[in-house]
């Protein structure tokens, strides 16, 4: 545990400020800490967006009767994937802090389905990244949740 933490810290320190590699970062977060426990995986990316996948698992269920995923793992994924979209748009590994994140649940998730999270950075200022995104399990056109949020770009002002 202590060794894994040291390695993760060193890995992140080396990447700080370097060009953003969506697959490398997804592999990192998918093998470390909370996001590793959730099992988040790379699913896709574009110029200002990023997608992660959250595979269904019975440990992540919020309602044992229906087998539907809890809200928490979806919020975690959306927080991570929207922050990665900012890095993607910036083109570097910036130091980001979540200011706020709002999630609207537009329908129930399907039991036993992998949920995909898509985050998009629609506006960057020198110190703030504004994001939106959706979570879906079958089609991007039929999201189960919409999100909107903002992040502080801690190392953004001088850059």
């Amino acid at each position: 545990m202590e060794q894994a933490r040291t390695l993760a810290a060193e890995f992140m320190a080396r990447l700080a400020g370097e060009p953003f590699d969506p697959r490398l970062m997804a592999a990192m977060i998918g093998n470390w800490g909370h996001t590793g426990w959730l099992g988040l995986r790379y699913h896709g990316h574009g110029a200002d967006w990023m997608e992660l996948a959250l595979p269904w698992r019975d440990e992540l269920v919020g309602d044992a009767q229906s087998g539907v995923l809890a809200s928490g793992p979806i919020v975690s994924m959306m927080d991570m994937v929207t922050s990665m979209a900012i890095n993607q748009k910036l083109g570097r590994n910036a130091q980001l802090v979540t200011i706020d994140l709002r999630v609207d649940y537009t329908r129930a998730a399907q039991p036993h389905r992998t949920v995909i999270g898509r985050g998009e950075c629609y506006k960057l200022t020198r110190s703030i990244g504004f994001v939106r995104g959706v979570a879906y399990d079958e089609s991007l056109d039929d999201p189960l949740a919409h999100v909107a949020g903002s992040f502080m770009i801690v190392d953004g002002v001088a850059a």
Binding site: M1, R5, A9, W32, H34, S71, G72, S76, T98
Partner: peptide, 22 residues
């Protein structure tokens, strides 16, 4: 625990959101 850790040494924001929602 390792299950709630984010940036090494810190509580992950998403895990915190899960606790708050609960």
């Amino acid at each position: 625990s390792s299950r709630i850790e984010g940036r090494p040494g810190f509580f992950q924001g998403g895990a915190l959101a899960g606790l708050l929602e609960m």
